[in-house]
Design a protein around this nucleic acid. Structure first.
Lengths: 210, 210, 210, 210
DNA sequence: GATGAATGAGCCTTCATTCAT
DNA sequence: GATGAATGAAGGCTCATTCAT
């Protein structure tokens, strides 16, 4: 029956959502399964109906949340392109920087999220293959990768090794943002941002003229 | 008498060493304090004479091991410069790349070390200031930073923001190496290395001609 | 189903009973939670399902045992009044002394109980208000207080401040009995008893003719 | 050498004093030997040079502090008698009440002291015999008992069983004060005091006209 | 006498996991 | 499918005590 099905889905989602809140509040290590089911209003045994253990849940969640992040950024870009079709953002670099800025801003405003995703930003994009049954609601790592490639083509941005380019940039952005936002070390994000832009720009340039 | 003092130092070091082995073997989370003291042949209480808890030990160890890594790299570079004074390595970029290659090679051959240091490569360099009494045996984070600056001056490499330059490069190297070496994803380290070199090169260039 | 419910009740009671035995045998401080659950044949975790910690258990137990004591005394008095309706015990003072003697005799024969209750005799009566959710099985502190007041009324014993009267007597009896029974100091209980009776008598008199 | 002797005495006294402070601050159970020696500025081993263990120290301390309390009260009474020889305080009852009031006031102003002495007020007086080598600095339990007897004689207060009389009163006062001062239950000390005076008065009367 | 590093038994407590209901 | 009581291994940590210096 569809009713039962959707009921199951809802429970799983409640667990996802509740766990995410708690991971942000108290950190992964200090969140117990009891915490999660208590707040979710479910029984402890129920947890094991949906997830193998806490780590399983975490991995699926990271994957899901990073995917969501890229999805939002992508949507934001699209809506911007529609609104303002004439000007700017007409080349790939601008688009990529727009996406990065968008993501960085979200992370700046949600340090809990950043802390949780930790340095696994690129995970959702590149490691999905490894964890096949990562089945959070609607994965989009590969989709995002494809989307980026489509954009490059549309903007006639020739890229030697698109995957490596994207990898390099994601890792750089992920690692430096983490440090600047969470520790404000060696400088704040605001102060680092111009330098990050330039670095990305140069890396892009390099992959297109290797 | 110095006997007691040196005895204490030795015990602390045994703990350091043993913990490091275990963290590499079983990972940090699965290593218990019991494991450590058992293998070290000490009593449990002794652990708490030297460290606040497992996390304290880990942080000091990361700091120590990253410091050591840079120290080795630095020493290798110096010895290379002595051996071969005439040729190459005469500019800052070459030296920096030499150091990175040296470190990467160590990490490639010691995945346990890499896994342990995780993505905290730059930690030892930039976060030391925050954790002043991180007093693993002979810290060198700041020393390394100073060393790099000295080299820049000697080679007349003008750099706008040396700290940010170093930060950017360390984070980039740390994050990408981790992925390439541990997961071989998206590519192996060997395949990624040329691209990494180039990225570093461009970033260097950027900070000297901003 | 009530089966689970009654099972829980039984477990809690087992814990209560076992702890009480051990506290009497070895004293509170030297009894560990391990001791309790071992003898009770339960798992350690089970303890924490029912009590916050050892102190929580102790407080509930003291409250419960003092309550029980008064309950027994009360029951004994009632049964005595039924058996022998004509004579004696017709005034409040006699009844009160009957109760005290009854309690003292129990304590004399169960030094472990006395040691455990220690000097907290009046606790069950007067401190219950403070620890509302002290819910050992069937509390009776307040009930006993009410019972005493009912008796006073029935016997037309006018009392200025019944609460203070009861307080004074309980504390006096509790403290002196403890010393005489446990330490036999300054004299044995048997030798002290007549004096205690007189003291109680005078105190009673005082509260009724202040 | 006297110097060494006095040095030892000083250390023991420091331990006494420091332990007392800590017992008052954190309670006996939560005070560790480490706490004591740390604050005293001595080494851990030194503790064991002077006391068998924490319990030994506590018992000596209770004995000492209760003794001191009676000593102060006694001194206060004497000085009052000197100042004001003509009037009042000419009978034993007044003197005893003076002493009780004096002690109660001290305890009201030093709840830590009361909590520590707990309900062991009479301890110092009657249990000293049991703990022969209770050798805190200058014991006075027996002295006080003797002092009281001397006063009775002087005031021609005939008493059947002076020891039991004193015992009864000390236990009554100790137990009720503890409850009224610490818990303010069932009433505050101020409200209870008149009743306590009367009770004492009646008990005195009883022992002199049994 | 004084020290304090070292000990290690043993404490309390947590928590992932199971399974009868 | 859902529950949550029960488990018990394992954890971190404390602290009284000892003893070589």
């Amino acid at each position: 029956m569809g009713k039962i099905e959707s009921n199951k889905k809802r429970k799983k989602n409640t667990l996802f959502q509740t766990a995410f809140e708690l991971f942000k509040e108290k950190g992964f290590a200090k969140t117990t399964i009891s915490d999660i089911v208590n707040r979710a209003g479910l029984a402890k045994g129920t947890f094991y109906l949906y997830f193998k253990d806490k780590y399983d849940l975490r991995d699926k969640l990271i994957s899901h949340k990073t995917g969501q992040l890229f999805e939002q950024a992508h949507a934001a870009l699209e809506s911007r392109l529609e609104q303002d079709p004439s000007v700017s953002l007409e080349n790939f670099e601008d688009k990529l920087l727009f996406i990065l800025d968008y993501i960085i801003e979200i992370l700046q405003n949600d340090k809990g999220l950043l802390r949780f995703i930790s340095k696994n930003l690129s995970w959702g994009i590149f490691r999905n293959a490894m964890h096949k049954n990562v089945s959070g609601p609607g994965e989009s790592g590969q989709d995002f990768y494809q989307y980026v490639k489509d954009q490059m083509e549309k903007d006639r941005f020739y890229c030697e090794e698109p995957e490596l380019m994207l990898f390099t940039i994601t890792e750089l952005v992920g690692a430096t943002c983490y440090s600047c936002i969470i520790y404000e070390s060696p400088v704040t994000m605001d102060r680092y941002l111009p330098w990050l832009h330039q670095s990305v720009s140069r890396i892009l340039d390099m992959y297109s003229h290797p």
